[in-house]
């Protein structure tokens, strides 16, 4: 036991005090709080780092996920949260039901025309900084449903995505890997790539006049928010 503890103490000759002994348990006191972190800090109880760097590390280590189920992938997402896989072990928390309390949104499923404006609205309601994990093939390209008349060809058409997890559906292990990758990115201070989103929520009166808009003028108020799909331009 004691030999194992000694491996953590890197530089005993330079710094030595009762405090240190008590902290790292060299004197055989309670060693339950020893951790990788302590190993990284060495024997000094002080660390020097940039505040930003510290915040990024904190942010990546405590992520609140949004409880957000769309389709098949949400079943595997539930399994990821629950026993056996237990995403909480990785500091990615218990799902929150309200977008106002969440940092990360996992988009688990096919996005169709009727749902995309709602998903955009949920995303907008999350406080900054926020991150998006696209789960499954549908959020990459529309997946097996890409040819559907009603299917948005990937989540990136509507919101920016930090991490794509491929699969139909991805296994829980794959999702955990994706979340771990996201944590790594956040800890390194990398932000999501800037993407051009073809589909935006905008006021109906701001749309360019064309045949469809003219036809719908009676049905939709001028200040209603709408999302316009140009299917012909979709990949």
């Amino acid at each position: 036991m004691s030999s194992e503890q000694e491996r953590f103490v890197t530089d005993t000759s330079q710094v030595g005090s009762d405090t240190r002994d008590a902290r790292i348990g060299a004197s055989g006191t309670d060693n339950r709080f020893n951790s990788k972190l302590r190993e990284a800090f060495g024997s000094s109880p002080f660390i020097l780092t940039k505040f930003d760097r510290f915040m990024e590390w904190v942010r990546g280590s405590s992520m609140f996920m949004l409880q957000f189920g769309i389709a098949c992938c949400s079943i595997e997402m539930m399994h990821t949260y629950a026993v056996k896989h237990d995403l909480d072990r990785f500091g990615a928390g218990v799902p929150r039901a309200s977008p106002r309390q969440a940092d990360v949104i996992i988009v688990p499923g096919t996005i169709v025309s009727k749902f995309a404006p709602r998903m955009k609205r949920v995303y907008d309601q999350m406080p900054e900084p926020k991150f998006v994990v696209g789960m499954g093939s549908c959020t990459i390209s529309g997946g097996p449903f890409q040819e559907g008349y009603n299917v948005v060809k990937g989540a990136e058409e509507v919101i920016p995505v930090d991490i794509h997890v491929p699969g139909c559906p991805p296994r829980p292990e794959a999702l955990i890997y994706g979340v771990a990758k996201l944590q790594e990115r956040i800890a390194n201070g990398e932000s999501s790539p800037v993407t051009v989103k073809p589909y935006e929520l905008e006021q109906f009166s701001d749309l360019d006049q064309d045949e469809v808009v003219d036809k719908l003028a009676d049905e939709i108020d001028e200040d209603d928010l709408v999302m316009r799909y140009n299917w012909a331009d979709s990949p």
Binding site: S113, P117, F204, D210, V212, E219, V226, R228, W231
Partner: peptide, 22 residues
């Protein structure tokens, strides 16, 4: 409700743009 056309009818054009309100 603002969808144009009936997608499983024979003359439906899948590429026509659609506007969906929120």
């Amino acid at each position: 409700e603002t969808w144009q056309g009936h997608p499983l009818s024979r003359d439906y054009d899948q590429d026509r743009p659609q506007v969906v309100p929120l």
